[in-house]
Each structure stands twice: as structure tokens, then as C-alpha cells.
Design a binder for these strands. Structure first.
Lengths: 134, 134
DNA sequence: CAGGATCCCAAACGATACTG
DNA sequence: CAGTATCGTTTGGGATCCTG
């Protein structure tokens, strides 16, 4: 698979040495930030339609408000989400995906589909591994 | 986008409530484990061809030997990688992707390509955000 | 309603030393 | 060579209280 060799060299190895190259690795730049516990979930929620803060809390009941705030800030900072404040009383804040966020979501869909199709195999592999190493 | 609504409801919401449903969420089961700092990198390396422990260390110079061991164990446990010990002296151990690992890698490729194509936009978004909130 | 501030814990990660 | 063991640090994340 010469293709894959090229892929790896291009995507990783060139940035793995010493010096300031690490921050310029595309894979790390992007993956590191969607690896959080909640990022993909919120991204997935917002891919549906814009939501307000409280609505997101209800959609993902087991997220703390602290982490919801922080996850939304991160998504905003990376250019994936747009935050709009409506100066009503009490205030209301809407979050929606940007074009960049929508395109990231589209790229993520393949992985989400894979997860849905194969997670049982993964769970079984874990069970089997744990049994062998008991 | 009714499609996305369906996707979200199916993939997340049903598992987000109370009870033991969370461990059965496909998205979390898979994403949580490839969200580590090194998993995708090692997966990417092994997608090229089988490697030995020391070769992987050299390919990803900034990984500690402790984390390389642990990442490889996790990949093995999830059924993505196969570990083969050759009882030579000194011993030599080869890691290669399983079918499951290769199919996960294929599903991941879309995201890796996206990262490569868009990471400059992400970096710029971050810079701009940090400037606005200085 | 949508957070900010603070405290605290657990997990992830890194560095170093040692071994079959 | 390919690990294991131990330690210390750093980060991620949860709980709680407070506010415009």
C-alpha cells in the first residue's frame, strides 16, 4: 500500500521530529480538539439545527453545565460554531454550525456510521481480550 | 434536515438518559477510545504496514515508551491490532492491523483528509478568536 | 436563561529506572 | 528489544455556589 505510506509520511512523520513542527501537524491540530468527551456529541446535535444553551443541556442530560459551556467555547474558537446573543430579558443565546462546522460534521459522518455498524464487534473484542488476560 | 434529526436521536439521545444505556452508545463506545492523544497516530502508522515496537517509536519520536505500550494494548483490546511475538533473542514483536482495524482506518480517512484540507482555516479561526477575546 | 468562579477528584500523560 | 513498575505532573471533568 504505497498510498498509505505516502499518507502517513505526509500527515504525520514530517511533523513528528523536534522543533515547532508538531503544532503544524494537520491531524493533531484537528483530532486533538474533537477527541474531547463532548465535542462530537454537541457537534452532532448542532448538525441537526441551531440550539439554545438550555436545549442542548436537555439533549445531552449527562453533561455538566460547566463542560457544555467549555465545549461550546472550543467549538466557537475553532470556527465550527457561531454564538449569537439575543439581548432579551432573560437573555437567550443560540448556537449554530458554521460552514466549516458543517463540513467537519460531514467528514465525521463516515466515522459515526462505522461506529454504529461495528461497536458490537468492538465490545466483543474487549470482552474476549479481558477474558484471555484474566 | 430531518435526516440529521433522525441520526442524532438514533445515535445519541436514546443513550443519554439515566440507566445503563450510556455504555451502549455506539458513538461513545468507539469515539472515546480513539480520542486519545496517540491512538489515531499509531493506527495511521499501522495502516501502512506492520511495524515492530521500536520502529513505531522512531516513527512517532515524541511518544513515550509507556504510552506507546499502552496505546498498542488498547488497540489490541478493541480488536484493531494484532500483536505477534517472535521468540527470538532478543525478542521481536510485530503489530499489524486486523480487518476491523483496517476498516476503522478506512472510516477515519475522511476525517484525516478533512483535517489536512482545513487545518489552516481552523488555526486561523483560533487566532482570530483569541485576538477578539484579548 | 446563560453562564462565571471556585474547589476538588480522577484519569491521562510524561520521566525515569529496572528487567527477561 | 520490548517491555514493566513507580512516581509525579498535568489536564479533563464534575459539583456547587453565585450573578447580570
Amino acid at each position: 500500500m504505497t498510498v498509505a505510506i505516502t499518507r502517513f509520511q505526509a500527515k504525520i512523520s514530517g511533523y513528528s521530529g523536534d522543533g515547532p513542527g508538531l503544532e503544524n501537524c494537520p491531524v493533531r491540530t484537528v483530532i486533538d480538539h474533537i477527541g474531547g468527551k463532548w465535542s462530537t456529541l454537541i457537534l452532532l446535535a448542532l448538525s441537526e439545527k441551531p440550539y439554545r444553551f438550555g436545549e442542548l443541556r436537555r439533549l445531552v442530560p449527562d453533561i455538566s453545565q460547566r463542560m457544555l459551556t467549555q465545549t461550546l467555547r472550543d467549538l466557537e474558537r475553532d470556527g465550527y460554531a457561531l454564538r449569537t446573543v439575543f439581548p432579551t430579558k432573560p437573555p437567550s443565546v443560540e448556537y449554530r454550525l458554521t460552514e466549516l462546522g458543517q463540513s467537519l460534521f460531514a467528514a465525521l459522518c463516515g466515522l459515526l456510521d462505522w461506529a454504529e455498524a461495528n461497536y458490537l464487534a468492538v465490545k466483543e473484542a474487549r470482552r474476549s481480550f479481558d477474558e484471555r488476560n484474566a
